[in-house]
């Protein structure tokens, strides 16, 4: 029976990778749309969310079906747990991408390009790319490598906050736009946290060891000066 169970697990994981690639696309498109005031692209991100939700639900259902049919243990069981949880995190990330897209759709004022926002989006996308690659290559060290990247996302968020403060102080009347962008920074920061959840899950799946992103915090350059 092993062969059939393995085949079903493989199919399940290819769906998970498909979900990851759709999510990654939604995330990078949403940030690109924001940076380039591209409302059409933002709408596309928003409209694509239903398909992502549906795929996440399929993964959830099929994972439970495999558990019910094969009573998996050890690595198989951890893989299914990982699959269910990763699908959930991916689905949340895509919801955050939709929130970014909605901000772009509703944003009428133009604010000077923020230095930190686009790199934040890129960094989170890179993190997501790295964790999914670590899952594909079954490399827990690679999965752990995203933890310090999340610290960078957090400091970029600080940077965006400071930038926006300057914008608001310099230019009257942009507070409404600025607060939205601050929310975007928060959405991206949350997305980064979801990626670290995925990474923790992959480490547990591969090694059976529970790791926490906080165990990997490393002081960023200049952090001691604060």
């Amino acid at each position: 029976m092993e062969r059939y169970r393995d085949m079903e697990m493989d199919e399940l994981f290819s769906k998970l990778f498909e979900l990851a690639s759709l999510t990654q696309r939604a995330l990078s498109d949403s940030v690109w749309a924001l940076s380039h005031h591209d409302k059409a692209l933002a709408r596309k991100v928003k409209d694509g969310d239903d398909a992502i939700d549906e795929l996440a639900l399929t993964i959830d259902t099929e994972s439970f079906q495999i558990i019910a049919r094969y009573q998996p243990v050890a690595m198989d069981l951890r893989s299914l747990e990982a699959c269910i949880r990763i699908a959930l995190d991916l689905e949340r990330i895509s919801d955050l991408a939709v929130s970014v897209a909605k901000t772009t759709i509703g944003l009428d004022v133009r604010i000077k390009p923020l230095l930190g926002l686009a790199p934040m989006g890129e960094k989170v996308t890179e993190m997501l790319d790295t964790v999914m690659k670590s899952l594909l290559e079954r490399d827990s060290a690679m999965a752990e490598s995203v933890f310090p990247m999340d610290d960078e996302v957090d400091s970029l968020e600080d940077m965006v906050f400071k930038e926006l403060l300057e914008v608001v102080t310099e230019t009257r009347g942009v507070i409404q736009g600025a607060d939205r962008l601050l929310m975007v920074a928060r959405f991206l920061e949350r997305a980064g946290d979801h990626v670290t959840n995925i990474s923790e899950q992959i480490c547990y799946m591969l090694t059976g060891r529970r790791v926490k992103a906080s165990d990997f915090r490393r002081p960023l350059p200049g952090a001691d000066d604060k």
Binding site: M1, Y4, R5, A68, R69, Y70, Q71
Partner: peptide
């Protein structure tokens, strides 16, 4: 089958 898990698997 007496074995439910077998039914579930196959």
């Amino acid at each position: 089958t007496h074995n439910m898990q077998q039914a579930a698997r196959v």
